[in-house]
Design a protein around this nucleic acid. Structure first.
Lengths: 143, 143
DNA sequence: ATTAATACTTGTAAATTGCAAGTAAATTCT
DNA sequence: AGAATTTACTTGCAATTTACAAGTATTAAT
């Protein structure tokens, strides 16, 4: 995997050097808000990512410490991906993208967004704790 | 300008349909955190955006209501760009990218980041008010 | 033993990006 | 007034990235 070249010393540019595309944050979204955790799960998301792009982005995310893969306990030919702390720390970014999107998107507002409207910090803390618990356990996504 | 095709009804995907690239948010960053407001200003940012990409993204941002251009009062051959409310509402997104970037970037922490650490809501409100004031005045960027 | 599921890889055409150069209108210099 | 400069782009083209279709390899189920 080729090294990411950083374009400047700006922390925003630094973040975008990893996250600045149309797919990376959607994979992280799936890991944060849904029980999806495998290659096939991500492929089945509504946005229909191409197989080579998904494989590429999973490599990039793992190589740069956003996620960690492990063999599924149930099926040995299946990998499950979990967020690392570095990835979990992106929850606020994704939450703000969701809030902005909900404001300017015409579709109906999701439950999480309503919850965020009532108690943003609490909701983020809850998500964070749920996902942190997964890091040091072997239990994968849906429990 | 070709219409943006939305990939799903997810608000995060909706946001990324506009913002999911390496440049758009850097232009908005310049408008939010610096006194930059013209084509030439953006070109001179440290990340060295290509001229055609900059022209393209400015069109995209204006066509989709994130920014508004007007002729500079001092120089008639110069355009100045200002954020609209829709663009101003992205401050929290960019702020969170900055906070994350500062945590994982090795470079030294900017003053704004320190300020955000002390009072995130207040800092965002201040930025918001500063930029909102520009919308209905003819005074461009640096005052 | 055969079929299915899962996670990719490969090939290729189309789209996007990056770089260098060129254009056009307004401004400043002489 | 004419020439050079500033500002904001556009254009052409090579290189990279993406999207789509198909193929491969390993494990699981029947």
């Amino acid at each position: 995997m080729k090294e990411i070249q950083h374009r400047s010393d700006c922390p925003i540019a630094f973040s975008l050097d990893y996250l600045g595309d149309k797919w990376v944050l959607l994979i992280l979204r799936d890991l944060i808000f849904t029980s999806k955790s495998s290659y096939g799960d991500f492929l089945n998301s509504n946005e229909k990512i191409a197989t080579n792009i998904l494989a590429d982005r999973l490599k990039l995310l793992e190589a740069n410490g956003f996620i960690k893969s492990s063999v599924s306990p149930e099926k040995k030919n299946k990998f499950i991906y979990n967020l690392t702390e570095k990835g979990i720390d992106l929850i606020p970014v994704i939450v703000e993208l969701m809030i902005w999107g909900s404001k300017y998107d015409s579709y109906d507002v999701k439950d999480v967004v309503k919850k965020l409207g009532k108690d943003k910090e609490g909701t983020i803390r809850q998500l964070r704790e749920k996902l942190s618990a997964r890091i040091n356990s072997d239990v994968p996504s849906n429990e």
